[in-house]
Design a protein around this nucleic acid. Structure first.
Length: 196
DNA sequence: GTCGAGATTATCT
DNA sequence: GATAATCTCGACC
């Protein structure tokens, strides 16, 4: 993992993380969907209102792991970006299990298909065995490791990317995914809005 | 397959 | 006491 890479803003790093291999123990997966969070610009970010006890990790060393609880039972994993003092991060939304899939299945008995094992932030964390104890882990040498892809991959981005103006309500979030990967159907990405 | 509502707990005001 | 970067389940097409 290249530490310097993560000193850039999350928006710059997010598409590069697509296709990276995330490993925790015997379980590893390929990152297929991420979301960029800029703490001081994104109203939806935990860091939008300033540094707090929970999001302090996101203000710290880039290239580290930031985990947090949401809605009680769920854990989400993020990659800290930008230099120390700036809060931006990349939320790992989905991935495809490459190895240790039998272990992931045991952790998520409610899931039926392999594609669902790591489809969704909380599911991804559970499948890999990431907990709050992994908060602040160095992705270069810690229990949770991240290996960047060899080359630039194809990626698609959310609706607001590259578009300026338009103070629409859903200007956020900035989302990136690898198109064509059946194991990743972005969580309600597109809304066909068909009549019932 | 797709849509809509409820559940549940650490953290912050 | 209010909030939150979500998931699961049931109902409908």
């Amino acid at each position: 993992m290249d530490r310097q890479l993560f000193e850039q803003p999350a928006l710059e790093v997010a598409p590069l993380v697509l296709g990276a291999i995330l490993s925790v123990g015997a379980v590893s997966l390929r990152v297929t969907e991420v979301e960029a969070y800029l703490g001081d610009l994104d109203p939806g970010s935990h860091a939008f209102r300033g540094q707090t006890r929970r999001n302090s990790t996101m203000f710290g060393e880039p290239g580290h792991l930031y985990t947090y609880f949401t809605y009680g039972m769920h854990v989400c994993a993020n990659i800290v970006c930008s230099p120390v003092g700036e809060a931006s991060g990349i939320l790992l939304r989905a991935g495809r299990i490459l190895s240790g899939i039998d272990i992931a299945r045991e952790r998520r008995t409610t899931t039926k298909t392999d594609d669902d094992l790591a489809r969704g932030p909380a599911r991804l964390a559970v499948a890999l065995g990431i907990t709050l104890a992994d908060d602040g882990t160095d992705l270069a040498s810690g229990r949770v490791r991240l290996d960047m892809p060899t080359g630039q991959l194809e990626w698609a981005s959310g609706p607001r990317t590259g578009v300026s103006g338009d103070g629409g309500t859903n200007a956020f979030p900035w989302r990136f995914w690898i198109p064509g990967d059946t194991s990743v159907s972005p969580y309600r990405a597109h809304a066909p809005k068909r009549r019932r």
